[in-house]
Amino acid sequence: MNDKWKNAIWAILKYGSLIIGSLIVVFPMWIALINSLKSNQAFNNTGILQVPKHLDWSNYITAWNAGGLGSAFLNTAFIIILSVAGNIILGTMVAYVLGRFQFRLKKIIMAGYLVVMFIPTITTQVAIFGVIHTLGLFDTPYALVLLYLGTDVVQIYIYMQFINRIPVSLDESAMLDGASYFRIYRSIIFPLMLPASATVTILKVIAIYGDLYSPYLYMPSTNLGVVSTALLRFEGPFSAQWNLILAASIIIAIPMVLLYLFLQRFIFAGIVNGSVKE
């Protein structure tokens, strides 16, 4: 009897807090959604919490056209595909070397990656800009690709945890078959780390997708606009029209939600397997 009560209270607590948490998460998104679907008139005349009687999609069309979102999506996709692909290759390479070999500089390299994570990059842009300009990449998407290419400590952490779970015996048997280290990386390590790469992908895409400052600085041409800069540019002239801004915000959220739904099973598998303690 006592145990039953305890379990019941525990269950109420569990589901209760999950529901409250979910409501807090959903509330702002719900408000944004319903208000983005109101015409100017409906927006002015109905309460913010009320669902519009008639769904008006015109804000989405206006936001898409006036915000130049079409080309912004293409530019963003181009940058993301190139940099994430490169990033995964480099990240797995670093993880393979750090995870499988012992050598002198290993500790220093890891510490190096850790330290740079704490540099507020916005303050070092003058020097970085000099590099990008010297390389002749200013005002091209490749400037951003190069900046996003490098791996970072969180990625290395995810990959390292994962590679430690791949039995070394696999490497050894491949070596018995005469495989080179490069071949081991290419045919064993890289494919087996794909779930971790799914995690890395989503984290990296989120970071690139939300980056505001670098696109402004390195690709000022308006026709090179990316999604987050398009949204900020859009806000200036339209900041009085909340229904439009909310519509633009939602349009921008959609591709990420789709990507997330697609990668979801890999991500959680990746993180789960990737963070096993040694």
Partner: peptide
């Protein structure tokens, strides 16, 4: 004629400092 939109002093100043600006 191509247009670039002004965002804030920071970006323009860093670009000027790098010698590449509109």
């Amino acid at each position: 004629v191509k247009w670039e939109t002004f965002v804030d002093n920071n970006t323009v100043q860093v670009q000027m400092n790098g010698g590449v600006y509109p």
